[in-house]
Design a protein around this nucleic acid. Structure first.
Lengths: 251, 251
DNA sequence: CGTTGCATTGACTGAGATCAATAACTGTGG
DNA sequence: CCACAGTTATTGATCTCAGTCAATGCAACG
């Protein structure tokens, strides 16, 4: 882990390209300068390094600057699962607020960098800037919704559907960040995908091969190209939000 | 749905026996009176009635006064799953904050009553009372942790383990509310349990019968008596928090 | 160019789903 | 109070998806 301290303008929240994700909308210039003072440090993580571990006291929450992190949750008997993958602009460490210590472990899936947001200072500032407080609540709430969608996937979907939904979700999130969304590199390994989806690595492999056979995707190792997006959506059992649906079901 | 409006003292948050769950600790007398003004209305729900539905605009969050509610999350193709059961003192509706409309549907599993907390007024008040704001963040964060534990259950545990963990979790939550925790009535049906655990109703039935055969529990319909709590914990693959563990693992 | 880690593919197995029948309870009205 | 319908739960028989075990393939790297 590599810490940075910086006052140079390029590290300011207000000029960060991710502002759309981690900054609240509709705040004044003076608010912005306050927010800028909040984030003075960053951490650089090499692949496999932990940002925090289960049980570490909560001092900060973190905003991903670049790279990808996974959060893992462990059962007392040693079994563990990847709970989430976190892309640039997303906030992690929120599960530490409840008990004052992180409940999960956050690990870099690839080389990554995160902004450190001192939690106490943040909470104070949120009280002063209503828009910031509201945005924080929205972030927490969306996190809940995200987990609930994931629950639905693990509870009701078959392996094939889970994987299709996973690829599409990743694609959507990449698109929202302005990346190519129909062709990208998976930052995570098959093991990590399998763990996240609650299936075995062999099943991930088989399903990906099957998708490729069916002409839904092209895969070369971790490089993936979505060919038939509609087909994937259909397979996942969810409607394609990329095309406005004019048709209604006629019963 | 039956609305109440009330200024009578018995309906005040400050005297509600659930205060320990929904009120922040360490607040002043004047804060208490402000909080009391926040919750003026309650809703009475008969079994099966919805408190809110997916897509309803968020106006309030709710605190369960008595009874049990379930929240269900639906997939676009009609599949749906019970995401959580909510006991007295727990807050529901938080998933509505992110998008300004509820993402799930909340339904009474048995006759229930909830306090209405107008969300905008609550957010304002939270800004004025730091302890309230902190408590709210803790509640949101614990909700996240709860969902993550649930994810782990659906992702890595076998049916048997999920059911054992479910019974123990319910028992713990009842104990925290001062109820009998080793003998109680399940408020929810087998269908609802199965949905929550991501398994089939027949499997729930079979596993319960198996638990009874093994002398772990006694079951008569929805009435359940935990006989061998340690055995259940072992089966669930989690340590028993009810007995302080002096022993350490010797490698 | 072997070694090491990650991914794919095949053969077999098993936990839990599905289908089906029965049993037990709940509530209703005569 | 009983009969009946309707719901909810249990139990059995069979099937299937995905897990497990095992072998092979493929990159990257010292």
């Amino acid at each position: 882990m590599n810490f940075y301290h910086s006052d140079n303008p390029a590290s300011k929240c207000s000029v960060c390209v991710l502002g759309q994700f981690c900054l609240p909308v509709g705040i004044t210039a003076s608010d912005i300068s306050k927010i800028d003072t909040l984030v003075k440090e960053r951490v650089h993580l090499k692949k496999g390094e932990s940002l925090y571990r289960h049980g570490d006291p909560l001092s900060s929450v973190y905003s991903v600057r670049f790279g990808t992190l996974k959060t893992e949750y462990a059962l007392e008997d040693g079994r563990q699962q990847v709970i989430g993958f976190h892309l640039p602009g997303e906030i992690i460490g929120l599960d530490g607020i409840g008990e004052g210590q992180y409940q999960s472990e956050a690990i870099a899936v690839e080389e990554s960098e995160v902004c450190i947001i001192r939690y106490e200072a943040f909470e104070d500032l949120a009280r002063q800037i209503p828009a910031l407080q509201q945005q924080f609540h929205r972030i927490l709430s969306r996190e809940l919704t995200q987990d609930q969608r994931h629950l639905l996937s693990l509870g009701t979907m078959r392996a094939e559907e889970r994987l299709a939904a996973f690829l599409l979700n990743l694609s959507q999130r990449l698109a929202a960040r302005g990346y190519l969304n129909h062709e990208f590199d998976l930052p995570m390994s098959r093991v990590e995908i399998a763990s996240y989806l609650g299936i075995q690595i062999e099943t991930v492999s088989r399903m990906l091969s099957r998708f490729a056979e069916s002409g839904l995707v092209q895969i070369k190792q971790r490089h993936i190209k979505l060919i038939d997006v509609d087909g994937l959506y259909e397979l996942a059992g969810i409607p394609n939000p990329e095309r406005a649906r004019i048709l209604k079901k006629i019963p």
